[in-house]
Design a protein around this nucleic acid. Sequence first.
DNA 1: ACAAATAACTAACAACTGTTAGTTTAAGAA
DNA 2: TTCTTAAACTAACAGTTGTTAGTTATTTGT
Lengths: 189, 189
Amino acid sequence: MKSKREIIKDCAARLFRKKGYKATSMRDIAQEVGMEAASLYNHISSKQEIFQELLLNMARLFTEGMEEIDGSSHKSIIKLEKLISMHVRFAIEHTDSISLITNEWVHLDEEPLREFTSLRDQYEKQFENIIKQCIEDGDFSPVDPEIALFSILSTLRWLYSWYSKQKNINPVELEKEMIHCLVDGLRNK
Amino acid sequence: MKSKREIIKDCAARLFRKKGYKATSMRDIAQEVGMEAASLYNHISSKQEIFQELLLNMARLFTEGMEEIDGSSHKSIIKLEKLISMHVRFAIEHTDSISLITNEWVHLDEEPLREFTSLRDQYEKQFENIIKQCIEDGDFSPVDPEIALFSILSTLRWLYSWYSKQKNINPVELEKEMIHCLVDGLRNK
DNA sequence: ACAAATAACTAACAACTGTTAGTTTAAGAA
DNA sequence: TTCTTAAACTAACAGTTGTTAGTTATTTGT
């Protein structure tokens, strides 16, 4: 059974997503949970704290996933497909906290912000290297890797918002179409 | 010469982009402009007002552009290229207010929010139709038009954030690469 | 130069923010 | 039962928010 702390974090994530971090008050969260704002502090120690946890947990999930995929011995183009599949999975499993990564990270306090951007930069760098490798392998036509990275990443980052609008879409099907759309376009013919 | 009202709107846009609508106070804006918060009200009538103007002006620019392109007699695939070129141009010319369209529109009051989402939905519908037409024309392979739309649009919507990070990129070059990345991938081989 | 209008200022408002202190209730162990 | 602990409550804090009122300074047209 879920701890109260986690219930609070879930509610907060949902509200942060819907109204944004700044526009969500502790009283809003309290109401959603079903208690008074002050009572929240029996379980958490600040608004920033849960926000940081939501964001950095998610960022670390991505980092771990990347580490595992990039560390594998697959061909780069397979790594890329696995990355896409991971993004699709996360977008479905963690719709709320994933939205914070794309939109709300600016509201992190100084130190966690540094950690976050560092994780993020590292992630992007590894992602770009995989794309470069795809080109060197001759699997991709010689596109600008930075632009390809940007194009792929922005699509993947908005997945969550789009997925929650579509009702009748099969996750497996979505993943397949996604790979088709993002990878096959760059393929060498 | 720029009116004070427009200076205020420019500063506001810059701050809204950097810190978000809710996190930007009238005192923040005032400081940026170089006057007291109360003095702003000699030129504007509320925080929401300038926010709405920034957002809806931008939305209307897109609608007009779409109307012009879609109303032309070009082949659909040419229309698509023109749309991409428009997005690139806007992302460069209006970096600040364009960011609001992707991120901050949630903070619109009820009625302008309705207008905004209506414009947006209409825009997306026309965009999707052009993609469908590309498929019917045989210029695109038979992808899921909804997924293609989503993929292209999310890339185009994040252009601004990415463009402001890159220093040494030629707009013309960017546009060419963009079209290559987004369109050529879907092309029938 | 003088009147009128424009745009800056200071001070203050009511509402709301995150958070703390202190108190009461409920639950579990002895 | 009684003692202890966890978790809810109410009340209030100090700071910030958007905005208004009232006043002073500056610019403009005659």
